[in-house]
């Protein structure tokens, strides 16, 4: 089985300037969707989202590709303010 949380964590840690502030959590919501939430230092948020969302969208697509075989539903989001 794919490990969505580890996958997102692995990518995000290599994109940010402050890997110590990276926190990635996984939760099953009531509709059966595995929801991955990314938290990073405020100055790294833009880096993870990317130009016009290109980076976060690419991360999302990779997580979804990992979910194809198990027929699971997974979504990835980033907490933008804290």
């Amino acid at each position: 089985m794919a490990d969505y949380r580890e996958l997102v964590d692995f990518i995000v840690r290599r994109l940010v300037t402050d890997p110590d502030k990276v926190q990635v959590t996984a939760e099953n919501d009531d509709r059966g969707v595995i929801s991955i939430m990314i938290r990073v230092a405020p100055e790294d948020v833009g880096r993870v989202i990317g130009k016009r969302g290109a980076t976060i969208n690419a991360i999302r697509l990779l997580a979804k590709a990992g979910a194809v075989k198990e027929n699971e539903r997974v979504d990835v989001d980033i907490r933008e303010e804290e």
Binding site: I11, R14, L15, A54, T55, N57, A58, I59, L61, L62, A65, V68, K69
Partner: peptide, 20 residues
């Protein structure tokens, strides 16, 4: 699976690998 619809997963993979 890694190619995806119209190659979009492969593109995402390429994008992320280049970034890292």
């Amino acid at each position: 699976i890694i190619i995806g619809k119209y190659g979009e997963t492969l593109k995402s993979m390429e994008f992320i690998v280049n970034l890292i």
